[in-house]
Nucleic acid binder design. Sequence first.
DNA 1: GCAAATGTATTGCATAAACCATATTTTAAC
DNA 2: GTTAAAATATGGTTTATGCAATACATTTGC
Lengths: 228, 228
Amino acid sequence: MSTDACDLSSCFLCANCIPEWREVIVVKKETIHFKKGELIFKEGDKVNGIYFLYSGAVKVHKQWVDQKELIIRFTRQGDIVGHRGLAAGDLYPVSATALAASEACFISNVFLETILKADHSFTYRLMQFYSSELQKAEMRMRNLALMEVKGRIAETLLELLEVFGTNAEGYMTVPVTRQDIAAYAGTTYETVFKFLKTLTTDKIINTDGKHIKINAENKLRKIVKNAK
Amino acid sequence: MSTDACDLSSCFLCANCIPEWREVIVVKKETIHFKKGELIFKEGDKVNGIYFLYSGAVKVHKQWVDQKELIIRFTRQGDIVGHRGLAAGDLYPVSATALAASEACFISNVFLETILKADHSFTYRLMQFYSSELQKAEMRMRNLALMEVKGRIAETLLELLEVFGTNAEGYMTVPVTRQDIAAYAGTTYETVFKFLKTLTTDKIINTDGKHIKINAENKLRKIVKNAK
DNA sequence: GCAAATGTATTGCATAAACCATATTTTAAC
DNA sequence: GTTAAAATATGGTTTATGCAATACATTTGC
């Protein structure tokens, strides 16, 4: 893994800003490394900037009483993390934690606002990005509220597949704990454990510890469709 | 109720665009009336524009298998409806239905994009609006996933109070069916019915058909806090 | 003004899924 | 390399909540 994976073209910022800005970005940006399990920022922290993920994997999550948490989304390279802070409030409404060793480009809020003020079309694209994030959030809202647990777990597996992809043997590239699957599906560890076991028995998936392989994507989709 | 409630200043568009644009807006806009229960647009319809609500009340909702639906949000005057269509896809991801006789200003997508291209700061404000909507959506995601039903119903009542306000006697200005409360809280009619009954017995609320009065807001908040 | 549709009221019953308890294995830390 | 801390594994019990059934009331369309 290179020390600086930034190619000044693949992240959302570089891909969407006016090319001339890149010279400024390369000076202003800061590359930060995160170890597996490391907290990137915490719900309630003061917002200081925005992150563009180069490599690794990150979960964005939100707390509720005691130890309960909901994972809002999983992100991979190219994704934006910390954009929720751009709204009125100046505190992060969510936390972000690295699921694997990760590298991110950090842009301070001050600099980001300079870009936004100067680059009209970047602002427009960022607005579109928010809009599509909002659509996804509402889809998930509906699923969490109306879909039964098995459907939500199946859906979680499909989303993990989509976000992280697979290696040569068909296993997902990022190992995810059952607890994290539960936290994304809005259920408990035990329920995930039991359901993954029946999925394994039915040969719909294979598990090797935290490494998961989906054998029958269509059957998972069927479970989602039939989930109430 | 006046025929045209638009004062060219109170809606999100007029309040945030460059003043000069208002002259154009007044020509391009279209005032539309909706009867109670009337569908404004339907999930899957082609997006043709955006609505700014002048008066009345609207629910934005999303379908799931059969007759199941989740109400995404309730809106009152001043609010934007239909903005979800601005993203990549060109189909509305949600439906909108008038809860009471309502008036809205309709702006076609073509004209809206003209404004967005020309008015940098309007685009910026709209982006901020999306960002705050996203935060709300994620908060609700968490609640739907982790909070138990009683807390969600209590939360629903508090949100209705916040959005619709009360009349002189303390009753909410917009009557809402228990089915709609259920659809917002992500539960069934029966559960809402049972819980509202105990709330009435405990004198925390008063109900007169669809008209609800909250007597002890603090007790509702306590229920929300203690909901798991 | 009447019919049809929609919403309300009310109950018991069934059950999915959370909760509890406890043992073992894996992973991380010093 | 040992220990602590997560994560996994697995059963049994409990309970919150959805579901079915049925009667009545209210709204809305024609």
